[in-house]
């Protein structure tokens, strides 16, 4: 199992191949449908995103609330295809890539390849495993969206599979 720590260098991203199982540690940002809609509205208005997109990884997820003694509740991936409308635009802002579940569109796959980014598949439905691997969780934007807000997560050894690599490789 390959172990990766964020931020990833361009070389590290380019070395990944679709189908590889990895363990990923470091900082990721959660975002779902509503947060993505707002990201694009901010960009349209020429305003800054609530996180630095350069090399950042978005995790398509909305966690359960944290019980006492835990940084975060269950937090598995949501269906990535719903973010197809937004992903290519955000990749052009310099994202290192995304983490989610399931296939994405040809347009998103092309954008990943053009931008030298990678898409990791997390295991859908394994919310307890991922929630338990989160060491810190901090809300950084859109508190009104509740679980759909943007959280900065410090994750430790997230079990992932490279689904789309930066060379057009496609696990699906």
């Amino acid at each position: 199992m390959k172990e990766l720590t964020l931020p990833l260098s361009k070389e590290e991203i380019l070395s990944l191949r679709a189908g590889e199982c990895v363990e990923l540690s470091g900082t990721v940002y959660t975002a779902r449908d509503c947060a993505h809609k707002r990201f694009l509205e901010l960009l349209e208005k020429g305003e800054k995103l609530p996180f630095d997109p350069k090399g950042a990884f978005l995790y398509y997820a909305g966690p359960c609330p944290a019980p006492a003694g835990k940084a975060c509740g269950s937090c598995g991936p949501t269906t990535s295809a719903r973010m197809n409308a937004y992903a290519p635009r955000l990749l052009k802002e310099g994202l290192g890539g995304m983490i989610g579940k399931g296939e994405m569109s040809a347009e998103t796959r092309n954008a990943l390849q053009e931008c030298g980014a990678v898409y990791f598949a997390a295991i859908g439905g394994a919310g307890a495993v991922y929630g338990n691997a989160i060491r810190r969780a901090e809300l950084v934007a859109f508190p009104d969206l509740l679980s759909e807000g943007v959280y900065r997560l410090e994750v430790e050894r997230f079990p992932l599979v490279v689904a789309y690599d930066a060379h057009g490789g496609n696990l699906y």
Partner: peptide, 29 residues
């Protein structure tokens, strides 16, 4: 085998973690 086996092993482990930690199995409750 391969990634498919990795997925199912993670899912089975998840069931155990949810039980032991009293966490929701999936965040989509």
């Amino acid at each position: 085998t391969g990634a498919a086996r990795f997925a199912l092993d993670t899912i089975l482990e998840n069931g155990e973690v949810a039980r032991a930690e009293e966490m929701p199995v999936c965040q989509d409750t």
